[in-house]
């Protein structure tokens, strides 16, 4: 199924045009998207560094996860909401951008990584909760998380540069 007709229709809706052509709304949405990075990725990074055994070593892993993940989730919600609006402001251009496509794929992978972590090694967290350096499976989860999320940020930033934009049909 070709998504282009739908994206073109979305591109022409009043809301999309209004955000795209606004002088203040677009910058505000974009600023929200960038600054919630601190809340989201900052918290995720602290948990990942704890899982890698390089940060907050004296704090139980379950405490870091329980206390910081709700904040990360709040940050993620704001990022997702503002991200949807940014996409909505230029769907044809965004969807055809290679960095956007890689970014979405990487976000999906972070989700899989988080699910695998929570349903496998994290189930037995009581056993290794206070270990300064967690077991290999947990370290790997932290490693993939920080690597993939960094990739997401880099692709998101690169998306603004239209180096590989395809001319729209």
């Amino acid at each position: 199924m070709d998504p282009l007709p739908f994206l073109k229709w979305l591109d022409g809706t009043a809301g999309s045009v209004a955000i795209r052509e606004s002088t203040l709304l677009y910058p505000f949405i974009e600023t929200t998207h960038v600054l919630t990075l601190c809340l989201f990725l900052g918290m995720i990074a602290l948990l990942d560094f704890r899982l890698l055994g390089v940060g907050l070593r004296g704090v139980p892993v379950s405490e870091v996860a329980r206390q910081l993940l709700p904040w990360a989730l709040a940050g993620f919600s704001l990022m997702a909401a503002s991200g949807v609006l940014l996409f909505y402001s230029g769907p044809v251009r965004a969807a055809g951008n290679i960095f956007f496509q890689i970014k979405m794929a990487m976000i999906a992978l972070t989700g899989i990584n988080a699910l695998v972590f929570h349903f496998t090694i994290y189930r037995r967290v009581a056993v290794w909760d206070c270990d300064p350096t967690p077991p290999l499976r947990a370290r790997l989860a932290g490693f993939w998380s920080i690597l993939l999320w960094s990739g997401v940020v880099i692709c998101g930033r690169m998306q603004a540069y239209n180096w590989f934009d395809k001319p729209t049909r």
């Binding site: 601190c38 990725l41 900052g42 990074a45 880099i154 930033r157 690169m158």
Partner: peptide
């Protein structure tokens, strides 16, 4: 990009 990633880390550390 490095500036942004460091921003996230600084934000996390301050927050």
């Amino acid at each position: 990009c490095v500036h942004l990633l460091a921003l996230a880390m600084l934000g996390g550390a301050v927050l």
